[in-house]
Design a protein around this nucleic acid. Structure first.
Lengths: 230, 230
DNA sequence: TTTATTTTGCGTTAATTATACGCAAATGTA
DNA sequence: TACATTTGCGTATAATTAACGCAAAATAAA
């Protein structure tokens, strides 16, 4: 007969933030391992009476203060049976977005440090977390082109140039500013505010808001969001 | 301190097949439960020393003879902690494609029946398998439009009208036969054979083959497969 | 006070792609 | 021989995308 199943199940979360025209990821460094310290994605074992998504929320709350604007399951990593050298652990990875523009993460505790890392300055991570992160970035890039999740990385009110820069930097592509603006505006999912940017150079720019209600209405009518580039 | 983790991990597989101009799914009915018998997706618990995808392959092999042409992880179902009434079980769902046109599934054993079900004639399934299947169909539909996985549901050599019908029936949309043909041919990923269809009505039609090598070459050059409809 | 500099916001045109068809060719059948 | 059926190729038009031009509104410099 089969041996009793002895596999642990964990969740890990990729938290993406965008600030200063760069994409960041939230990492933690556990200190109780004393010997080799590694930066890692926030996460941990799932509790018996807890749903997977609740487990992610809990782990993130324990380690950070971040207010998520979007969260979605990414992939389950369980093909490498030695991804954790101590035990067989299968990890259900999630990725989440936050408005990092004016966000405080929790102060470091005795147990761990928490820090934002630029996406192109990621250190070697614990377990297979570099792999997980890679897959997360891939997914973020793809999703950005067919769902309006870019707004979840920006403040409630933002400049058109912010949105444009977000797309350029994350997708690592050049886009024509004017065509981009025309396209997004044609969808009718942005609301113009009366406010102007506090920036002191060039022509003052209006602040815009994403109208999620309007977006959902359009979706019901068969609308499909899409941003493509050469 | 935390209670020891007591969560089981299983895999389930949606096997899609296409024949007679209809999409089918492979279901099994376990008999040892005696009382209430339910049709269910093939699957089972993951073994300690086995990768997730190996577990799927093994379970499918135990229950069927199918030769997979495509397999991909779909989603991990673990938000409903009572999805299995007996134990907490988290299921990693996969979906796979086969050429069902001339395929024998295993004969029914004492333990279970195996059968193809038309996608619009699915009975109530065990656990949350109807939900899993729904998500699988959604994914299949989406993927069909941006990756050439339709060929994995067809025989090695197929008619253009087969391919066209496959897209029409799975996506439940009408398409213009001539524009569809033009579009696919323009990609240069099909190979014409010298053979003709054995069908005895209308003008004889050439058999085509999907040239995967050519497709991969194009992908490397930045090609993007896409089939859109009104 | 003028003159650059910078960034926004709105337009125009050409190139490409999608859509909607027409129609002859090649077979089997009445 | 005429007819029904399905394939295979083509063409005209509409719609969308891509590539730019340029004035407006502010600050900074001369």
């Amino acid at each position: 007969m089969e041996k009793l199943q002895n596999i642990r199940i964990a969740v890990d979360a990729i938290v993406f933030g965008y600030k200063n025209n760069d994409l960041y990821v939230l990492l933690i460094e556990q200190k109780f391992g004393s010997a080799d310290r590694y930066w890692a994605l926030p996460g941990g074992l799932v509790q018996n009476d807890e749903s997977l998504s609740d487990a992610v929320i809990r782990e993130l709350h324990e380690e950070t203060n971040v207010q998520l604007t979007f969260m979605e399951q990414l992939y389950t990593f369980g093909d490498d049976i030695h991804r954790d050298s101590r035990n067989r652990v299968i990890s259900v990875a999630y990725y989440a977005l936050v408005d990092a523009s004016n966000l405080e993460i929790k102060a470091d505790t005795d147990a761990e440090r928490v820090q934002w890392f630029k996406i192109d300055e990621i250190p070697p991570l614990a377990f297979d977390h570099n792999l997980i992160l890679e897959k997360g970035i891939e997914r973020l890039k793809a999703k950005l082109t067919y769902e309006p999740i870019g707004f979840d990385l920006l403040p409630e009110e933002f400049l058109f140039s912010d949105l444009e820069n977000l797309y350029c930097t994350i997708l690592e592509k050049e886009i024509d500013r004017r065509n981009f603006r025309k396209k997004i505006l044609s969808y009718g999912i942005l609301e113009e505010t009366e406010k102007f940017s506090p920036i002191k150079t060039g022509r003052p720019a209006k602040l815009f808001k994403f109208n999620k209600l309007k977006y959902n209405e359009l979706i019901d009518k068969g609308f499909h969001f899409e941003i493509k580039f050469a």
